[in-house]
Amino acid sequence: MKEILLSTATGFAVGLLFAKLKLPIPAPPTLGGVMGIVGLFLGYMLAMRFGWMR
């Protein structure tokens, strides 16, 4: 859980820095894009958990 909180805090800080420097974020700028990445991650984890990709 500590790793998740640290990752979230780091991502938040980097997002603020990118906004301050007026740089494009290295991630999809919409919730739909972010959820696509989450779905990809969950699909991968499911496949690995059930041994579909051995």
Rank of each mutant, 00 (worst) to 15 (best):
Y44L: 04
K22C: 04
I37E: 13
G33V: 10
F12E: 03
V34T: 14
L5E: 01
L31F: 03
M1V: 15
A9Y: 03
V14I: 15
L42R: 15
I37S: 09
L40N: 03
G51W: 09
I37A: 03
M48G: 00
V38G: 01
A19S: 10
P28M: 08
R54E: 01
G36C: 09
K2Y: 07
P29R: 10
M1S: 12
L46R: 15
A47I: 01
F41T: 04
L5Q: 07
G51N: 10
M1T: 15
M53I: 01
L6F: 09
K2F: 06
L42K: 15
V14S: 02
G11N: 11
V34H: 05
V14Y: 06
T10D: 01
S7N: 05
M48K: 11
L21H: 09
T10S: 05
F41K: 14
L23N: 12
T10F: 00
F12Y: 08
G32I: 11
K20W: 13
G33L: 02
L17E: 01
F41V: 07
G51R: 10
A47Q: 12
R54N: 05
S7G: 00
P24L: 06
P26N: 02
T30Q: 04
V38D: 00
G51H: 07
G15K: 00
P24V: 15
T30M: 01
F41M: 12
F12D: 02
M1C: 05
L31Q: 07
L16W: 12
I25V: 15
P28Y: 13
A9L: 04
G33Y: 07
R49T: 14
I4G: 00
T30R: 06
K20M: 11
V34L: 08
